[in-house]
Design a protein around this nucleic acid. Sequence first.
RNA 1: UGGGGGAUCGUCUAGUGGUAGGACAGCGGACUCUGGAUCCGUAAGCCGAGGUUCGAAUCCUCGUCCCCCAGCCA
Length: 563
Amino acid sequence: MTATDSTTSNFIRAIIEEDLRTNKYGGRVHTRFPPEPNGYLHIGHAKSICLNFGLAADYGGLCNLRFDDTNPTKEEAEYVEAIKEDVRWLGFDWGDRLFYASDYFEQLYEYAVQLIKKGKAYVCDLSSEEIREYRGTLTEPGKDSPYRNRSVEENLDLFERMRAGEFPDGSRTLRAKIDMAHPNVLMRDPVMYRIMHATHHRTGDKWCIYPMYDFTHCLSDSIERITHSICTLEFENNRALYDWFLDELGVYHPQQIEFARLNLSYTVLSKRKLLQLVEQGHVSGWDDPRMPTLSGLRRRGYTPEAIRDFCDLIGVAKANSIVDVALLEHCLRQDLNKRAPRVFGVLRPLKVVIDNYPEDLVEEMECINNPEDPGMGTRKVPFSRVLYIERGDFREDPPRKWFRLAPGREVRLRYAYYITCVDVIKDERGEVIELHCTYDPETRGGWAPDGRRVRGTLHWVSAAHALEAEVRLYDRLFSKPNPLDVEEGEDFTANLNPNSLEILTTCRVEPSLAGAAPGSRYQFERQGYFCVDSDSTDEKLVFNRTVALRDTWAKIEKAQRKR
RNA sequence: UGGGGGAUCGUCUAGUGGUAGGACAGCGGACUCUGGAUCCGUAAGCCGAGGUUCGAAUCCUCGUCCCCCAGCCA
């Protein structure tokens, strides 16, 4: 079994393959991704999207995009558009199969009438509090509603008048007549319709009664002739109810399969909590680059390919789990390594003067755009007497195994020259503000004709030619692997990482970056992958650090410190 | 204490009666004009106890632990 094969097997595929083998659905595979348009999609939804669209693609089937828009008070057209954009960006195509549960409202009403006529549904006048009381508890049975045995005629009349708007919100419901003593509380005469005088984002004021999710969802899947209704674990209990509706109505019956939703370390993935982060201003919005939303990840610089690869790698199972966010970052780096052009960007500049370099000479150094892909060619980067290097690449008193610059040490400036540090200038506070170096003219391009080697290679920019830029450094939003792990009385925001955003305003980048378009991604050599933010302008470049490069030296130093 | 699910390296995940495999993370090494990338190596797991069997992660029994359900949310 190859590496790629190892991830392609899961229990859902096994079921589908068995169904195909037994011709259960006439060889069809038809899935759907059914979001509620009440918020933005996040990486957890990506798992579901990749699963549903991926399965359809792999088995020659179809996948619908359907909005489960049954609650007008929570849903908005804005979310519909954002969701469509995110699914498209992720790389999936629903063709002409864009649906809305609200498209089926009339049909659903007819189904409800059918159940009433069958004596399987009734109009109940109990308040929501009373319904709760009558429902019983997990261990005690409920009791029948006093309205449970209304005649079919009365139920029909009342339900029609509910639709006609004769009754105020909350005054009545339509309930399925199942069993108030059922061990599964969802089967204790669940509400099918509620009265809501609310404007729906698509049907406007046409309706003042709205079907509940449980009634709507299974029948929508049935109407769309979905073969495999894939959903998350928390709906396992609902399946009995779906089966009941489908069987009582005698309609096409899809097969529901539940899988474990994605959890990510150092991340929260619940719409409610993400909304809280936005509303309380812990982040700048749904597309804050620290958010696990698809819009946030996109702005951060994530590629759809990396996210899809991640979704493949994590697999699909029924056991709750928490995936290490490091795996997501791995997928990202792997993708970006192949495609991101390399450039020089100095985040924390330290001035370097090459004492023996001619005052007004400017050389164009030829630099490789991507060592992983020679086809991406080369570019010229100007070099001159005054440069900036990374402050962190110089140590006055270097530790063991330090390959970088230090007094008297020789290093290579990548694609340029070997330089040796000859003097260190400090300000009155003792802070190093400038380095003086000499260069070896024989080493142009970065090679020494005498074969002498240096261990360290630094990136640099020419002070006179570099562009100023702002760089936003992101770290994990939460400082605990499980952000929900809090002290009594605190909520998850107590685990917010105070250092999740660091803004650097004095960065210098090579001139080829002039006019870089928002969304374009680069590797700043030796540092990480960066993406031009939507705030960026021609006057002021703004970059987001998508993810840092793996930093072996940081690891060594950390180990040294421990010792 | 009702019902529905689930337990395999640190993490995620294969396996469906026949040598427990992969990925990430870790560790070690090689190579390198990115301490990047790449390559090689390495450690690490079947929730527990019984049983069936020549042979059990897999089948049976009894336990343990974890998750979900009492919205007119989805």
